[in-house]
């Protein structure tokens, strides 16, 4: 469990990046920190592994105030993935993945064997092991970044806009992969994004931040959609512009299917079970196009 208790962060230049934040993050869930640029997402995330220290308040991991833990030891026990993978350009993929185990003094051959397994875990070909980061595509580098973060088998995985630099298709693929990994490996994931759709796609819990590092709302995606806490949240998730509002079209007589359209009338998907009668209380799955 990760807990923020009355956390405030003011940078030396006077910028108030986070203002009195309380958040509880349950173990083995994905919590997404979402908000516009400069709203303090990165600052919040980096307080968990002491890359940033709070000005006041506490950050607790499993009940221990991280301020009392040696930063180097703490960081080795928490996985961190950043936007461009943050790989070491002068080291081969396999050595990049083994970074933390090697720092911890694991024997080279054992670390290498484990790295190769991790490449499998994140869906990368073992043939890439001896390449250098720049020989890989952005999406592949991102997967290596995830493998590296997993290498020390941490309970916590911090991800800062990890899929920001890849194209939408790869991004979708990586999101699916992350969900799969999370449920398979039972990690507590804290994920930063400014993409609200990505937040909806991944989150068990969403933390919506507004400029000035103030929490606007915390809740499950369904809660946030159903009850935006205020106008800011409604506007941020696009509810005010009707972006999240979908309507059912009359059943297509030829195919017997029901098409869902968005507020502008553009098709958004199909009702999965077209035999279910709409409106009888069962909530049909809406398959996004």
């Amino acid at each position: 469990m990760i807990e923020f208790r009355g956390v405030t962060k003011q940078y030396p230049d006077g910028t108030l990046a986070i203002e009195h934040v309380d958040i509880v993050i349950q173990p083995r869930t994905i919590t997404v920190l979402v908000g516009s640029s400069g709203s303090g997402k990165t600052t919040l995330l980096r307080m968990i592994n002491r890359m940033v220290d709070p000005t006041s308040g506490q950050v607790l991991v499993d009940g221990t105030d991280v301020a009392t833990v040696d930063p180097v030891r703490l960081r080795r026990s928490i996985g961190y993935v950043m936007q461009n993978g943050g790989l070491l350009p002068h080291r081969r993929i396999v050595d990049n993945v083994a970074t933390v185990p090697l720092l911890r003094g694991v024997a080279k051959s054992a670390a290498r064997a484990r790295s190769l397994e991790l490449l499998d875990t994140v869906g990368l070909d073992r043939g890439l092991a001896d390449k250098y980061p720049r020989q890989l595509s952005g999406g592949q580098q991102q997967r290596v970044g995830v493998a590296r973060a997993l290498a020390a088998d941490p309970n916590i995985l911090l991800m800062d806009e990890p899929f920001g630099a890849v194209d939408p298709i790869v991004r979708l693929e990586l999101q699916t992969e992350l969900r799969r990994l999370q449920s398979a490996l039972d990690k507590t994931v804290v994920f930063v994004t400014h993409d609200i759709d990505e937040a909806f796609a991944l989150a068990d819990q969403m933390v919506i931040l507004r400029t000035g590092g103030i929490v606007a709302q915390i809740g499950t995606p369904a809660e946030v959609l159903a009850h935006p806490a205020d106008d800011f949240v409604a506007s941020f998730i696009g509810a005010d512009r009707g972006q999240r509002r979908l309507r059912l079209q009359p059943r297509d007589p030829a195919s017997g299917r029901i098409v869902v359209v968005d507020s502008a009338g553009r098709p958004a998907g199909l009702i999965e079970d077209d035999h279910a009668s709409i409106g009888d209380g069962a909530s049909p799955d809406v398959k996004a196009s």
Partner: peptide, 27 residues
């Protein structure tokens, strides 16, 4: 040396000396 590379090395738990010797100097 790219700041992000150094930041990422620090975030993975390298000490300052390790960052210097294993990342900054080789690069």
């Amino acid at each position: 040396v790219d700041r992000q590379t150094i930041d990422s090395a620090r975030a993975s738990g390298m000490t300052e000396l390790q960052i210097l010797v294993k990342v900054e100097i080789p690069l």
